[in-house]
């Protein structure tokens, strides 16, 4: 935890620096943006490479790297107060926590769910598109 009332950085207005906060140069920012655009192209390309289960993890991994770049350089987190970093990491952690618990729960009862069209879906299909080929009837996987 940081101490209050202490200036976050040296305040040297005369040398072209802001009174508060950190100055991140144009070169750093442009490099970051270039890296982001490059990674965007990479993530589009790897979509077409079949590596099975790993596709999603590669895509998420690249997205995490990109998010890290944005947070570190565009959002000045590298030079910011540690507590602000903690806030950002902490809230991300809570999202991951919630996701882990919910997905774990879903994966547990997946086997007892129904397959096929949900009831209202099937009713709509019967009423409006009776010729549609997707007419898989509702069945229970694990009776």
């Amino acid at each position: 935890m940081s101490q209050p009332n202490q200036p976050s950085h040296a305040t040297d207005v005369a040398a072209g620096h802001p009174l508060v906060g950190h100055l991140v140069g144009i070169k750093t920012l442009v490099t970051t943006a270039s890296a982001l655009l490059f990674l965007t192209i990479v993530t589009v390309i790897v979509r077409y490479i079949d590596i099975g289960e790993f596709n999603i993890w590669v895509a998420i991994g690249i997205a995490v790297i990109k998010a890290g770049l944005v947070a570190t350089f565009f959002m000045h987190l590298k030079w910011d107060r540690p507590f602000n970093v903690l806030v950002f990491m902490g809230c991300s952690l809570f999202v991951i926590l919630m996701m882990a618990f919910c997905v774990l729960d879903t994966s547990q009862y997946r086997a007892t769910q129904y397959t096929g069209n949900a009831t209202l879906v099937q009713e709509t299909l019967d009423a409006h598109a009776p010729g549609a080929p997707i007419t898989q009837k509702r069945t229970e996987i694990n009776p």
């Binding site: 209050p4 202490q6 976050s8 305040t11 508060v20 507590f83 806030v87 991300s92 809570f94 999202v95």
Partner: peptide, 24 residues
Amino acid sequence: PAQQFDSAKLGMWLFLATEVLFFG
């Protein structure tokens, strides 16, 4: 000014935390 700036920044980061959970 440093105290005001730091407060504003922390407030914004907390707001961003709520945004992260909102989308999360």
